[in-house]
Design a protein around this nucleic acid. Structure first.
Lengths: 196, 196
DNA sequence: CCTACCGATCGGTAGG
DNA sequence: CCTACCGATCGGTAGG
């Protein structure tokens, strides 16, 4: 009985979080109101506070749960024995897939992090920086091993991350473009641009 | 006398607009308050309304003045007799330069357009779509003339536009990276990825 | 999960 | 360009 209650509570939390992500994406964190979120869930605004301490906590959960997914993935990639080309490709593909599967979360993490409370904001940015640093490492190693032609690794990573991030616009083309089509073309463009 | 007054008024307007762009970029349109903007300008909030009808009008001016610059540039590029490779390169370089010279305006146009009043929003999106369409045309022609290898032109343009847009992050690296260095590396990466 | 409600802040106006 | 001020809306609390 207690077990069931816990499960249903955490389900409820997840539902709220998903709705918050969708709303924050559509309207922006500041423009989205707690009342609007409550309306989506068919409850009154104050009822939300039984599940979350504040509006900011919702944003925090959205941003950091997304960050954890990316961090966890790059852990795996770095630990793998693949070539640096393959590693880079794996990172690109993961970004594209995340954008496809968890669009609202990724979008909010990308766009609304600036509204995080100060300490969370600093933690978030340092984790993002660390992710970037590890990706740069892969490019550098790839250059040293002659897998990639010589380039400015920092700019290369910036270019790749920006390109995949831009997939948020592709929502508009969703019907016309399949995910695999998109993945393959983008991977080719970005990898072709840097290999020997 | 009247002439001087007009000049000084339009200067004043420009100063307000630049400050608005800087503020909207830093805090986001919704989070930025009219009072905050007034404070930057060392006047009281209601005084702003002698220059602008509403907060939304400021956003509108920022978004559309930026859009006009890009539209004007692609007009020139399309009219030129250069190869499609050169045309694509020119577009990429212009994006990078705009990001460098008018960062606040470009950033706000990229991020805050969703807060435009409905009709302005629709006009803005249709102009952006048109810009994209013309860029796709250049890629298609380049493929037909065997300047570019075969690819999905829509994804190619999406990749390029996303990559240059991502330069907003590079603000963090401004000291380490020169504009020309950045331009050349990014142009190489993106063009190398698609040429024959 | 709801009703009732609060202080703070918002964009904007009137009138000078 | 300012003072004085307004209605609307915000995130959040008390108490059940």
């Amino acid at each position: 009985m207690a077990r069931i209650k816990i499960l249903s509570n955490s389900n409820r939390k997840e539902i709220i979080l998903k709705n918050a992500a969708a709303l924050f994406r559509k309207r922006g964190y500041k423009a989205a109101s707690v009342r609007e979120l409550a309306e989506r869930l068919d409850i009154e605004a104050p009822s939300l506070y039984n599940h979350f301490r504040s509006k900011a906590e919702l944003l925090k959960k959205i941003c950091f749960s997304t960050m954890v997914d990316f961090t966890g993935h790059i852990d795996m990639v770095v630990a793998s024995k693949e070539s640096n080309v393959k590693k880079t490709e794996a990172l690109i593909r993961f970004h594209i897939q995340k954008m496809y599967n968890d669009f609202d979360f990724v979008y909010v993490a990308n766009h609304e992090w600036k509204h995080l409370p100060k300490e969370d904001l600093e933690l978030f940015l340092s984790q993002r920086k660390e992710y970037e640093r590890r990706m740069i490492e892969i490019i550098i190693e790839g250059i040293n091993k002659k897998e990639f032609r010589k380039s400015h690794p920092q700019i290369t990573v910036l270019t790749i991350l920006s390109a995949v991030r831009g997939l948020e616009f592709w929502q508009r083309h969703k019907k016309e473009l399949s995910i695999t089509e998109l993945e393959d073309h983008m991977v080719h463009h970005l990898i072709n641009g840097i290999i020997q």
